[in-house]
Simulated scan of single mutants.
Amino acid sequence: MSNIQLIVEERSADIGNFLVGRLLPFREKRMVGPFIFIDHMGPVSMDDHHNMDIGPHPHIGLSTLTYLIEGSIMHRDALGMVVEIKPGEVNWMTAGKGITHSERTPDYLRGLDKQLHGLQIWVALPRDKEEMEPSFYHASKEEIPEWTEGDVTYKLVAGTALGHTSPVPVYSPLFFLEIKATSRQTIHAGQQLQGEAGMYILEGSVESEGHTYEPKRILVAKESSLCEFTMNAGTTVYLFGGEPFPEQRFIFWNFVSSSMERIEKAKDDWTNQRFPTIPGETGYIPLPQTSAAVKQVK
């Protein structure tokens, strides 16, 4: 990617009974456009005795985007939604003023050997949408815009880019784009992107300005308009970003807000079980006993 500002390496993080690769937030770059959190899940093999079990937990001030490459996750939330997420589908849950959900291995897979691989992403809401009513949207793989140019396949998971728009209901100008190359190809995308731009290398390698970059890292461009790079054969990358917000964001656990006071209220509400509950679920993940929220830069 031309004009690289920062390289972010994937770091291990424990999210309960599951290890992931944490990409955002990063101490030198808390957000890329409205994207405030990115975890790379797997690829991991689980035997018949191990399953994904992330119990009821809350969110405010953001939309979650779950995109699977392999495997399956059962999503349940306080709106009453029960949806199995499969590879190539987009699970988009907007927390707004507050929602609770769980993520588990589906029942029919719990006694089997299985694979899981995907991306878990949080997109912060603009300030005037932070207290909106919670909502949920699930897109099948057939609904996601996909097109091919020579040996390059594009899939627009969310937002608007390269003359296409995803049906996923986003709330600020952004893009999340999967690009796959079967032969060595140079990608000229920058003039059609807006705001900030980052690129996650999933597999293969990318060349830019005489340097080669391997998987499990994010490259952040100084300007999205300068987003040009060469993909080697067998490479998959994700381009993401958009217009940054004028205000800073705070993050504590699963809470995101432009107001520290609002996060403190969410912490108290969760501790005292004032969040909406999930039909059919019992128990909840306790609020972590850590210090003040992390201040987010613009």
Rank of each mutant, 00 (worst) to 15 (best):
T64Y: 02
V8P: 05
I201K: 03
F176H: 06
F255S: 13
P34C: 07
I60M: 08
Q273C: 06
I285C: 14
S166K: 01
E228K: 01
E103G: 05
T290L: 07
Q185D: 12
C227E: 01
L287Y: 05
L177N: 07
Q296I: 01
S257N: 13
M1P: 12
K216M: 14
E228P: 02
V168N: 06
T153F: 01
R22A: 11
L65Y: 02
I263F: 01
Y108V: 14
I187K: 08
G198H: 03
K267I: 00
V44T: 07
M1K: 07
D48P: 10
F136E: 07
A161F: 00
M81Y: 03
M132P: 15
N91V: 04
L177Y: 00
E143C: 00
R217Q: 15
T277M: 05
D53K: 06
D268T: 04
S2H: 13
G98P: 09
D39M: 10
N17M: 13
T182P: 14
I251Y: 02
N51E: 13
E207Y: 05
E214I: 09
I73R: 04
T153I: 13
A95R: 08
V220C: 14
D48N: 14
E281F: 02
D269A: 03
L24W: 02
K298N: 09
D268H: 12
E89I: 05
L119C: 12
G21T: 10
A189N: 11
R76N: 05
S259V: 06
T277P: 10
T212F: 06
S208L: 14
S135H: 06
N232Y: 03
G42C: 15
T100M: 08
V237W: 02
A13E: 15
N91L: 08
Y171C: 14
V256S: 11
D269M: 05
K86F: 11
G204L: 10
A293I: 02
G21H: 07
M41V: 15
T182Y: 04
I69Q: 11
I218K: 06
G111Y: 12
L23T: 14
R30Q: 15
T290E: 14
F252R: 08
D53P: 03
E10F: 03
K265F: 01
L162S: 00
F252H: 11
M1W: 04
H164S: 00
E143S: 01
E70D: 15
I36A: 08
C227V: 02
Y108M: 11
R104T: 08
D39K: 08
E178P: 14
Q289T: 10
N51K: 08
V82A: 13
S102D: 14
